[in-house]
């Protein structure tokens, strides 16, 4: 909060904004030219049937949106995106939280374990996809070979070839990539929880689970909000790993909205339609972020 004081004269007040705005200007130029401008253009294109080649824009009103809402392929892609987000959050955020709770109890080696668990996140998600496509490979993959070595060969699958397994399999690879990232945030937040709370709980005879449920989790409220917001946004944007592992297949089984947009825009060339899909995706992400954070804020009070 700004300290209350005597108001400076009006001229100085206006003048005083010059330096801050100059400091802001470079970032605003980048952001305006390469993010906000194309965003507005996307909205405009979503009302046209532009194919990427026509020299003028032909406005078709809400046709693209109507087409999307009536298109099973798009609706299925939306549904898959929800499942994908849920899987991603369960694996990456759930895994990160669990692992943070485990290693916060370690007295030595915590920094090392934390650094190692974070290592996958240093790789590009696309590189992760390439690696996991091999791990899931039906003939040479370590997962099937590992199952066979444990005499569980019956469980071996063509992971990325089964429509029902392909999306969860890609989610596992993304979870591997991301869980360390969320773990670091949780861990940092756990270290700010007052140790006396744990001591009090211990005196009450609380077990490990009880301490986690009633001390750790409430203490992580803010971190959890940040992490869930970040993770949901990241998952809704998800593209790299899916593209590198399955390209949206088999038979659309991993075609989430981000992949749908890419395919419709750059393979089929229906740019207006794809722009409309991207606008819908944006609205969903935005609505979620605002709604979720408001809800969390209210519950925190």
């Amino acid at each position: 909060m700004r300290a209350a004081g005597s108001g400076p004269p009006r001229r100085r007040r206006v003048w005083g904004y010059v330096t801050p705005l100059l400091l802001l200007a470079p970032s605003l130029i980048f952001y305006g030219v390469f993010v906000l401008q194309p965003l507005v253009k996307s909205v405009e294109l979503s009302f046209t049937d532009w194919d990427g080649a026509a020299p003028t824009l032909n406005y078709v009103g809400l046709d693209n949106y109507a087409q999307l809402i009536g298109d099973d392929r798009f609706l299925l892609a939306l549904g898959r995106t929800v499942i994908w987000s849920a899987l991603y959050i369960a694996l990456a955020v759930g895994g990160g939280l669990l692992f943070a709770a485990l290693i916060t109890e370690l007295r030595r080696g915590q920094a090392l374990v934390r650094a190692l668990a974070f290592l996958p996140h240093a790789l590009a998600l696309a590189v992760t996809g390439v690696i996991w496509a091999q791990l899931f490979h039906p003939n040479i993959g370590a997962i099937n070979a590992g199952l066979e070595a444990m005499h569980l060969g019956g469980l071996a699958q063509a992971w990325l070839g089964e429509p029902l397994l392909a999306l969860p399999s890609v989610a596992v690879s993304s979870g591997w990539h991301a869980y360390g990232f969320y773990m670091v945030i949780f861990l940092a937040s756990m270290q700010t929880i007052d140790p006396q709370l744990y001591e009090a709980a211990a005196i009450d005879g609380a077990g490990g689970w009880h301490r986690f449920r009633h001390v750790t989790l409430p203490g992580l409220h803010n971190a959890t909000t940040v992490v869930l917001t970040l993770a949901t946004i990241n998952s809704l944007k998800g593209f790299d790993a899916v593209w590198a592992m399955t390209g949206g297949g088999p038979a659309y089984a991993t075609e989430i909205v981000a992949v749908y947009i890419w395919r419709v825009a750059f393979q089929v060339g229906e740019l207006g339609l794809a722009a409309a899909a991207s606008v819908i995706l944006t609205i969903i992400v935005l609505a979620f972020t605002i709604g979720f954070n408001r809800n969390r804020d209210r519950r925190a009070v």
């Binding site: 802001l24 970032s27 952001y31 390469f34 993010v35 401008q37 194309p38 965003l39 253009k41 996307s42 294109l45 990427g52 946004i233 809704l236 944007k237 593209f239 909205v257 981000a258 947009i261 890419w262 825009a265 740019l271 794809a274 722009a275 991207s278 606008v279 995706l281 944006t282 992400v285 935005l286 972020t289």
Partner: peptide, 23 residues
């Protein structure tokens, strides 16, 4: 003013890639 930037934090890249290419 800051919310203008925060908005960008939630924006999926997919929302801008099509015009961005032609731009």
């Amino acid at each position: 003013v800051f919310y203008v930037y925060l908005f960008g934090l939630t924006l999926p890249v997919q929302a801008i890639i099509i015009p961005l290419f032609y731009q």
